[in-house]
Simulated scan of single mutants.
Amino acid sequence: MIQLHDLQFEPYISEEEIEGAVEKISARLNADYKDQNPIFIGVLNGSFMFASEVIKRFKGDCEVSFVKMGSYEGTSTTGTVKTLVGLNQKVEGRKVVILEDIVDTGNTLEEINKILEAENVADYKVATLFFKPEAYKKSLSIAYIGIEIPDKFIVGYGLDYDGLGRNLTQVYKRKE
């Protein structure tokens, strides 16, 4: 059990399970983007650990960029996604892989979709470490899913609760 601010969290997904999910996604990306030069775009802050592990495992040439989006306050989504740091490189005509820590409502993906359509990318796919199918309300395709989880609030491996918990190497869920 761990305490972050005013909430308690209990162990939920082990380092080994996370490692297996990262390996599975990475193997598929290596197969799908063999002999290509994709741009990996990590969605900060949460995806930094996942993005690092996927990019380290990519066997070909690639480029890396990040965007920073914000939609959470405490344990709840605000429903509004703000672009805090936008794209800083040309992606027109390029193949892009979005690296997300978690997809729940899909609001962030919808905002990223608007940005990438405006930038005229050739193609983009989404890779997410965690996916909450119960919470997902959008129709955008998610090509690579590491672990499907119920609609529970989690922290660790890049995910936080009001800034804390990102450095944890396993994932914890909120104690009910």
Rank of each mutant, 00 (worst) to 15 (best):
M1N: 12
I2L: 15
Q3H: 14
Q3I: 15
H5G: 06
H5N: 13
H5D: 10
L7M: 12
L7G: 00
P11A: 11
Y12F: 15
I13S: 02
S14C: 11
I18R: 04
E19S: 10
V22E: 03
V22I: 15
E23G: 02
E23L: 14
K24D: 08
S26P: 03
L29M: 05
L29G: 10
N30D: 11
D32P: 11
Y33S: 01
K34F: 14
D35F: 13
D35Y: 11
P38Q: 09
I39K: 09
I39S: 09
F40R: 08
I41N: 02
L44M: 14
N45T: 14
N45F: 00
N45D: 11
G46T: 10
F48E: 10
F48S: 09
F50R: 02
A51F: 04
S52E: 11
E53V: 05
E53M: 13
V54S: 00
K56G: 00
R57W: 07
R57F: 04
G60S: 11
G60N: 15
E63H: 12
E63C: 06
V64C: 09
V64Q: 03
F66T: 07
V67R: 03
V67H: 02
K68H: 13
K68S: 13
E73W: 01
S76D: 12
T78Q: 11
T78M: 06
K82R: 15
K82N: 12
T83S: 12
T83Y: 01
V85P: 04
V91D: 13
V91P: 09
K95A: 02
K95D: 08
V96G: 02
V97Q: 01
I98R: 01
L99F: 08
L99D: 04
L99Q: 00
D101E: 10
D101W: 01
T105N: 10
G106H: 07
G106Y: 08
N107I: 00
L109W: 09
E110R: 10
E111A: 13
E111I: 05
E111L: 12
I112C: 05
I112G: 04
N113P: 01
K114A: 02
I115V: 14
E117G: 00
E119C: 14
E119T: 06
N120K: 15
A122W: 06
Y124M: 04
K125I: 08
A127L: 07
L129Y: 02
F131W: 03
K132L: 03
P133Q: 08
K137V: 06
K138G: 04
K138V: 04
K138S: 10
K138P: 04
S139C: 06
L140Q: 14
S141R: 15
S141Q: 14
S141T: 13
A143E: 15
Y144M: 04
I147T: 11
E148A: 13
I149K: 01
I149S: 03
P150C: 07
V155Y: 11
Y157E: 05
G158W: 06
L159V: 03
D162V: 13
L164M: 13
G165M: 07
R166M: 00
N167I: 01
Q170M: 12
K173H: 14
K173W: 10
E176D: 13
